[in-house]
């Protein structure tokens, strides 16, 4: 059985939970960035499947999984901010180069990191992670309407 380490680290005052497996010193690193509404939980099976060849790191963003969930008046929940937290997390755990696995919310977070540190990104693994207008189909129409509201609506969006 592959050993998966379930760990936490403090980043900008927030507890960040992450799953890690594989040989950090010698194997190439894959940073796994999860989607909504899940967490590193979505990688629970793929981590052991790859851990004999790779070093895998899967953090939970604030508000997700087992990481801190500060309320909205104490923490700015934006993709810029989540990317900033993940960037600091990467620095703190000492990842210098990595491949990025991006899925759903992982794409806007991962691509913000790639633009900031292109030299750190060895390759991309893109799983339903969008970077083109063509990928936003009919599903997004109600969300686009929501984006055009002048203030946040309360609870009227359903993911169906």
């Amino acid at each position: 059985m592959t050993k998966i380490k379930n760990q936490t680290i403090t980043v900008d005052g927030q507890t960040i939970f992450y799953r890690e497996a594989g040989d950090k010193e010698n194997a190439p690193t894959i940073l796994l960035l999860h989607g909504f509404p899940t967490s590193s939980h979505m990688f629970r099976n793929v981590i052991p499947a790859l851990a004999d060849k790779f070093h895998l790191v899967a953090p939970d963003y604030p508000g997700f999984g087992y990481s801190s969930m500060p309320p909205v008046d104490k923490f700015e929940y934006t993709f810029d901010h989540l990317a900033e937290i993940v960037d600091k997390f990467i620095t703190q755990i000492g990842l210098e180069r990595y491949s990025l696995y991006v899925m759903d919310y992982g794409a806007p977070i991962g691509y913000r990191l790639a633009i900031k540190h292109p030299e750190k990104v060895e390759s991309l693994i893109v799983q339903n992670g969008n970077a083109y207008d063509e990928g936003l189909g009919e599903f997004w129409e109600p969300l686009k309407a929501y984006w055009n509201e002048s203030k946040l609506l309360d609870g009227s969006i359903h993911m169906e």
């Binding site: 508000g63 909205v72 929940y77 929501y146």
Partner: peptide
């Protein structure tokens, strides 16, 4: 939190 992120998308 999730509504804020939907909005910020």
């Amino acid at each position: 939190i999730q509504l804020q992120l939907f909005y910020d998308y």
